[in-house]
Design a protein around this nucleic acid. Structure first.
Lengths: 409, 409
DNA sequence: CTTATATAGTTCAATGAATAAACTAAGTCG
DNA sequence: CGACTTAGTTTATTCATTGAACTATATAAG
């Protein structure tokens, strides 16, 4: 906070507002209104003016700018059948898109959506990233991403920006993976410009559970604006969405729902804590409690074995999943007391096990947070495969819509 | 909170920005800079221009407006001893202030601070508000507030707005106490205009723990910007401050730390839940566990009895407080996983019992959230008496500084 | 077919706010 | 006393919004 006035003008906090801010804010207002129109219905300038409160003159001027950047497109005439001159329909330019990417334990993936969220193409490549160095993984992903980007361009979609989801704690501002235990990455700074060069919007880094929560926000029911996404992987991740915004605490470390204390008398967790949710509801914990040998074999096989055991009604397996559900309930109850979520969305293995998880989870919620999170507000994720990828891509689109001035004409 | 509806154009979301917004934002920028200058050092227009990045001309114009509303005052010349024309010092007008009020179980209170936070006067009136109707309590408070306001005016301080803290869940937007169990209030809408008429800024309603947390933010160490304030009263309240902002969840219900699950095998709570923090660390719970008969007698006496028992080393009392500390640790650990707080501030009876609470609380934090909340970041509240009152007042000042355009010249 | 009317979109002068540069005011230094 | 320095004001310019007038293009009526 040193303020030795020597530089031209070093404001130590806060930036003066100028008329450019008004323009930026109204650009976003207009674009946001057009973007949130139901697909197929193309708003006209006059309708946008009516909906936003701006004058027609302002909207015209703003739309001109947006057309100039290529983010919007005109759609011929909108003859509404009534009297008067027909308006010109406006829509997000389907020839522009973003790329979503994901690095996970046993695969890398990349896909392109256009600005309206429609998937242009998507490709998953199996790859064992367990305990792998980051460099070769990033090189392989760069290959895949370049290929996907090229194919998208051939199909007429130019990629403006990208999002990358990784299963770990990230510092998006510094493009750094702070810790991704299952990849064995610790404090790895990624060169996102080299991963995918010459993108007007660059590449943004996301936590996998957070990205999946964002996908749920974008592709799930429209009225669900406050929820906790529970991502069941080797660990238990959480994505907290509050008022349609991803919530990350002071330093972005939030959503560590996997390490909420659900059993003070519990066992030691890998995080150093005791009785964390993850020690009961994480994949390894469930496999162990269910008596399934998960060592050496792919997780998908262990999961199949678990589901089979549950279907057969094996008591050991039933008890393991029941316990996981109960602990999930405790964690959700405590979370609800701090941030007042109203719904829970199950992803990852929780989605797979939902049938067996639900009874004890519902019961537990009713017991520990009565009247807070209602059992019928427990749902499974709308996006199964590639949720993190789509969420990351969608979030990049959304941040563009909220700040369209970042795109130069 | 007057909401003059029936505007010509009803924009369904988002409001167009205009040049007035720029002015408002820069008014706040300039005023904020002047307000956060250390007391006694009066910034000049030129210094403000340098610090904010605005031009001298803009600052001059903005300061003129602020002087017009009476929120700022000029302070003669600032002959800095160096060359050049001396600047004119600017400061928050000490002849303007706000009134803070508090309703609690056994008292009502009101006090006035000037805009810099200095206490002009403060008065506490004992009154048993247990299970009392809201009307007589509000009438008594109106009396007290009017008297305090008058005395303040006689001392040269005009009151611009007020804040009222109550021990319960509030909906500030609708001036409604949703539930204050210890007062026996349920869904009570308060007539804040009648409580204190003709205030330019009106009166704002606060939850008591939240207000106390705000007082801690304003009057505690300057570098403490993220913390959880734990208010030990009959119930356990929480105030969550994140990045120097009070954090309340989607519907303002946040900070219900008293009902985090700390013992899944625990007993039933008054909230309907099970194993809530309050069932172990609330005053009644501690008294009961310590073997102190709290029925009928004032709480302050029971508290004295408890402290005496602790000082004597009575095992029952020691065990009760130790258990409360352990449970506090569990709750703080879980909260830290969701919102990543870095410090804990103890208020109410937790502050009184700190000596006996600290060992088990520290131990518990180290066990359940290692590396997250460090034991030496546990402190007791800086403001003992009237914390909620001062916090509410300070918050009103702060919201004025952040939106000075609300004050007309 | 022509005219009336309604709606969409553009053009243009006016307004408010910030900026940059010139200017006035009021001190210290040599 | 004059040179220099810093504070604050005045003035012309720029930019984005607004409101009103205007142009463009459709349907409806005569």
């Amino acid at each position: 906070m040193a303020n030795t006035a020597a530089a031209p003008a070093p404001p130590d906090a806060g930036v003066p507002g100028s008329m450019g801010d008004v323009r930026r804010s109204n650009l976003a207002l207009v674009l946001g209104r057009i973007a949130q129109a139901p697909a197929g219905s193309h708003l006209t300038r006059a309708q946008v003016a009516g909906a936003t409160g701006l004058t027609k003159a302002s909207v015209s001027s703003i739309v001109l700018d947006l057309l100039g950047t290529g983010i919007l497109r005109e759609m011929g005439l909108n003859s509404h059948g009534e009297r008067g001159r027909p308006g010109v329909g406006l829509e997000l330019n389907p020839a522009r898109g973003v790329i979503g990417m994901e690095i996970n334990v046993d695969y890398i993936a990349a896909g392109v959506t256009d600005l309206s969220g429609a998937v242009v193409l998507q490709e998953i490549r199996e790859r064992d990233n367990r305990e792998s160095e980051s460099a070769p993984v990033m090189a392989a992903l760069a290959d895949l991403a370049a290929e996907v980007r090229k194919t998208a361009l051939e199909r007429g979609v130019e990629v403006l920006g990208g999002g990358l989801a990784v299963p770990g704690l990230v510092d998006a501002g510094n493009a750094t993976v702070i810790a991704a235990p299952n990849l064995g990455w610790l404090d790895v700074e990624l060169d996102l410009d080299r991963l995918l060069p010459n993108l007007p919007l660059g590449v943004t880094l996301f936590n996998e559970a957070n990205a999946a929560a964002l996908a749920e926000l974008a592709r799930g029911p429209a009225d669900r604006r406050d929820f906790l996404f529970l991502s069941g992987e080797v660990g238990v991740g959480g994505g907290l969405v509050i008022r349609s915004e991803l919530f990350t605490g002071p330093e972005g470390h939030a959503g560590e729902v996997g390490h909420i204390v659900v059993d003070p008398q519990g066992i030691l967790c890998s995080c150093g804590g005791t009785g964390c949710l993850e020690t009961i509801a994480g994949q390894d914990a469930i496999f162990a409690a269910a008596g399934i040998d998960a060592k050496g074999q792919p997780r998908s096989e262990s999961m199949s074995a678990l589901v089979a055991a549950l279907a057969e009604g094996k008591p050991e397996a039933l008890r393991a999943v029941e316990g996981a559900g109960r602990s999930l309930g405790v964690a959700v109850a405590s979370t609800a007391r701090v941030v007042n979520i109203q719904a829970v969305v199950l992803g990852g293995h929780f989605a797979v096990l939902e049938r067996w998880l639900r009874p004890s989870l519902s019961e537990s919620l009713a017991k520990y947070a009565p009247g807070k999170v209602f059992p019928d507000h427990i749902t499974i994720a709308a996006v199964e495969e590639g949720g993190a990828l789509l969420g990351a891509a969608g979030s990049v689109v959304r941040s563009l819509v909220e700040a369209p001035h970042r795109l130069q004409p």
